[in-house]
């Protein structure tokens, strides 16, 4: 039905509602907290740096807040494969 399609296409309010619900669920629980992300980054980096050398400039951090799951993506460039000393 053309008219129905036309009206459906205009429904932006449900998109707004869904975006808000996801965003606020995170903001309320504190996972949207920049400090938490910084802390996670530092602690994860510290663990990795124990074994391989990491250039802090070559770390990419991505956060995707979704529903039901969110992802924190850390892309760390390591210079050379871990040598025997890591073992």
């Amino acid at each position: 039905m053309k008219i129905l399609d036309f009206l459906m296409r205009r429904s932006s309010a449900p998109v707004a509602r869904d975006r808000l619900q996801i965003l606020l669920a995170h903001e309320r629980s504190g996972t949207g907290n920049a400090e938490l992300i910084n802390q996670l980054r530092e602690e994860v980096l510290a663990v990795i740096a124990k074994h391989v050398s990491v250039d802090p400039e070559k770390v990419q951090i991505k956060m995707d807040r979704g529903s039901p799951i969110s992802t924190l993506e850390l892309e760390i460039e390591i210079s050379g494969l871990p040598s025997a000393k890591a073992a």
């Binding site: 009206l7 205009r10 429904s11 932006s12 309010a13 449900p14 707004a16 509602r17």
Partner: peptide, 10 residues
């Protein structure tokens, strides 16, 4: 009601 604006209930 046209779905262009958040409803009161939303």
């Amino acid at each position: 009601s046209r779905g262009e604006m958040l409803k009161v209930e939303d």
